[in-house]
Amino acid sequence: MRNRKTKLWIYLFLLPAIIIFLVFFLVPIITIFITSFTKWDGFNSPIFVGFKNFINLFGKAEFLISLKNLLYWSLIAAFLHVGYGAIVAFILYRKPFGWRFTRSVFMIPNVIAVAAWAMIYRFFFNNDFGFLNNLIRIFNPEFNIPWFYNSPYAFWAVTLTWLFYSVFVTLVILTDLMAIPDEIHEAARIDGASALRITFKIDLPMIKNAIGTGIILSITSRIAMFEAIALTTRGGPGDDTMNIPLILVSSITDMKYGVANAASVIMIILGILTLIIVELIFKMRKVEKF
């Protein structure tokens, strides 16, 4: 009886969250799925066209380039972005001198809007007066590369706008590291384990869920990345830095809401796939017991 009452209270407290989910997430997602199979200009009634929007998307060179870019960015995110965040977390975990200050400074880029960062990088990479090229010209006066407008540099210039801002990954990993009981480390040290061995044999296995979460967050951010590209290369030069959100927005500009929603559906599917794959690789459902 008491158990039933507790459950009732749990459901009651969950109700507002469920309503918010239904109204703000589920209904729009269902609408997106349905209209992705239609030709819809956003004003007149949608007309059912089956899989035409998806077929057209996969037939577009810019969409295939977007998928290729997403694959590269996902790999960079999973290995370099998360890797960098994890290294910072491990350094902070050892609480070296000034670690609190470093942690705060590391946070700063995340409190600045992505759009503002994009503008800062436009100036940073500017060929005429940008900091980077002027620095390089001290050694090579003939150096002339408009980073955001030349391939393959544009891809890497866009990548650099987010690569080192991995504070969320650091915080998630740091929290998990701090939750490891000291006794485990102490026992390992008594058994003669080196610091490196402790990191690889104890810490890393115990924070695998945090690393998995970091990878999921990082890759899904790449799937949804918009401002960093729209305000710098706009997908150029040509389509070299194109991604799916840009296709989505340009489809909306062309009043092709069916195509835009098909792109959204693909983004949702890619996000879910990322979640499943990372969960499987990191066996995230398996609960570690200390």
Binding site: G235, P237, G238, D254
Partner: peptide
Amino acid sequence: MPGSVANEEFGKLLPKLIDGSV
């Protein structure tokens, strides 16, 4: 030209014409 080509694609492709990659 259609709006999206005139306002977006033309300018985005020009750097490639300039550097000779197209």
